[in-house]
Amino acid sequence: MIESVPPLVICDAGPVIHLDELGCIDLLSSFSRVLIPVAVWQEVQRHRPKALALPCLERISATKPEPPELEAVAVALSLHTGEWEAIRVALENPASVLLTDDTAARLAAGNLGIRVHGTIGVLVRSVRQGLRTKIAILDILRSIPISSSLHLKRSLLDAVIKQVEEHQ
């Protein structure tokens, strides 16, 4: 399927916190809607309340009964309440993209057929969208170890930076 409009995104706490730490919370405005499940909202409020000041963020609760397959995978992977609720809301919005930086949450969501991306994807996408220059994003990527609580292996971050540098 070829996408032509920005997707609706459901956020887990990680990307909201990390994008704000990196001075890039505004990039969430480039999606058609940004839904923050209640449990995620509360988590961000505890750790990074100022990130929730972005006007486009919509607090939302899941409304449909929980699918049994979600409970099984969430329990098996010990997902946190916020991650669990974010996946549940994503299942209620089939065309959405889940934003999370947690590997287990990504694994769970992927197994349930949900499209998933994270902070790095949103940052790199901003160059393609013309919201940041490549130079600015490269600087932000390099600053991740000192400016954010996003934990990435150094060699992986170097590989990400190299790919962005080399992309025409």
Binding site: E3, S4, P7, T103, H117, V124, R125, R128, K153
Partner: peptide, 24 residues
Amino acid sequence: ESHSSRMTESFVMSDVQWGLTGND
């Protein structure tokens, strides 16, 4: 086990591909 380095690397690199060449 649920946060293996290999899986995380694969997820992050797929993010980069989406960021660089996605259509949305």
